[in-house]
Amino acid sequence: MKPGKKLRGVNLGGWLVLEKWMTPSLFAGLNARDETSWCVELGREAKTRLQQHWHSFITRADFAWLAEVGINAVRIPVGYWLFAADYPYHHSFGALPHPFVGGGVEVLDRAFDWAEEFGLRVVVDLHAAPGCQNGFDNGGIQDVCEWHTQEAYIDYSLETLERLARRYGKRRALHGIEVLNEPRWDLDTKLLKRYTSAAYWRIRSHCAAEQVAVIFNDGFRSFREYTGFLQPPEHDNVIFDIHRYQCFVQDDIDRDIYRHLQKVVCDWKSEADELIGGLGLPTYVGEWSLGLDAKLAALWAEGPFDHAHTAMDDFQFDIACRGYAAAQLAVFEKYLGWFFWSYKTESMPQWSFRECVERGWLPGKFA
């Protein structure tokens, strides 16, 4: 499917790549902070626990509900360990050569079945790469960023993308494959471009441009660093992915709701106009949320964070959430599409799409 129909989507985060803040119950009583250390710490017990999570966290009923409210796409994060225990060793594995639980690919197969049943499009996103590309828990190993240091890690990432393209390239639901989620801001842009270009051709060897998009993330840098990159006619159906949050740096955390809204309708709106007019590629906002809670930032950044919204009563907080949601949607609708992060968490309602809808912070219908 060539770009055209606007995608209004939701991420299925915390499902095939674990993130402790999203599913704290899975990590209770453990020292683990990410999926790698979780599998290493649990050892043989990891298989039973993770398979139970895979079968209960997201189900067919969730796809049915998303379709009912008018969502037409899902972005599914996956790890490099999805297919087989042939991935390169990393020192975080300890004595285990291949610690990750197998069988995730069958879960992804089932997700494609459900997406096709309910008419949803699927973006498969390589969220965690060997050696970790960003040092975040969502990259597989927190506080480690070594993906760019070994050719074996980069090569295996490309192999994983080609396996995804080979397995799902003819599936009716497949909208696109994202080559790497959130590579860190200090990785060399030239290296990322070489990798992305190689990924494009590996995916294209199995997926026609008329059917499947190739998607790449901005890597926390200006779109201007990608001006002229992967342009038609040599490259076709390439999509740029940006993520927009206001809760991870101190300047944003210190904002009151009025300054949060101002950043959306002024800064992000101006950015959208510049990007749409200047990059030459269609763009998704691949991640966004209603998260303004400093408690989440404190999971990654040390130091005290004063919650600027504690003075609000419940009614005022609901209004703030609705306003922040509406402002973002008004801006993000300028792009080719957007994907809320995420469908579901255990204890963070502003990051849970379904709870945001049910609380009235987000619209009840998206079509």
Results as ranks from 00 to 15, higher is better:
Ala311Tyr: 15
Glu116Arg: 04
Met1Leu: 07
Leu192Glu: 01
Gly278Ser: 04
Asp254Asn: 12
Leu187Thr: 04
His55Met: 08
Glu333Tyr: 11
Arg221Tyr: 05
Val285Asn: 06
Glu346Trp: 05
Arg259Thr: 09
Ser222Met: 06
Gln262His: 14
Leu66Asp: 05
Lys334Val: 10
Ile141Ser: 09
Met348Val: 14
Leu158Tyr: 01
Glu358Gln: 09
Gly43Pro: 01
Leu191Gly: 00
Thr36Cys: 08
Arg167Gly: 06
Asn181Ala: 06
Val264Glu: 12
Gly303Lys: 07
Ser352Asn: 11
Val40Gly: 02
Asp306Thr: 13
Glu68Tyr: 06
Leu66Asn: 03
Leu66Trp: 05
Trp185Gln: 14
Asp313Phe: 06
Ala301Glu: 13
Ala325Lys: 00
Tyr80Met: 00
Arg184Phe: 15
Lys344Leu: 13
Arg172Glu: 14
Glu41Ala: 07
Asp109Trp: 02
Ile76Trp: 05
Glu146Lys: 02
Asp241Asn: 01
Leu180Gln: 00
Gly169Lys: 10
Val69Ile: 12
Pro363Ser: 02
Phe57Arg: 01
Trp288Thr: 03
Pro24Asn: 05
Pro363Gly: 13
Tyr89Cys: 06
Leu279Val: 02
Trp21Ile: 03
Phe63Val: 04
Asp313Asn: 12
Tyr258Lys: 09
Val78Ile: 13
Glu302Leu: 12
His98Gln: 11
Phe240Cys: 11
Arg8Ser: 11
His206Asn: 06
Phe27Asn: 06
Val249Ser: 09
Leu192Tyr: 00
Asp137Gln: 03
Tyr258Phe: 15
Pro88Arg: 02
Thr59Val: 05
Leu7Arg: 07
Phe353His: 02
Glu162Lys: 07
Leu26Gln: 11
Thr196Glu: 00
Lys6Ile: 10
Val40Tyr: 06
Gln142Asn: 13
Asn11Tyr: 05
Pro304Asp: 12
Lys20Phe: 12
Phe305Gln: 09
Ile76Gly: 03
Arg171Phe: 04
Val10Asp: 03
Ala84Val: 02
Gly219Leu: 01
Lys170Arg: 12
Ala152Tyr: 04
Leu362Gln: 11
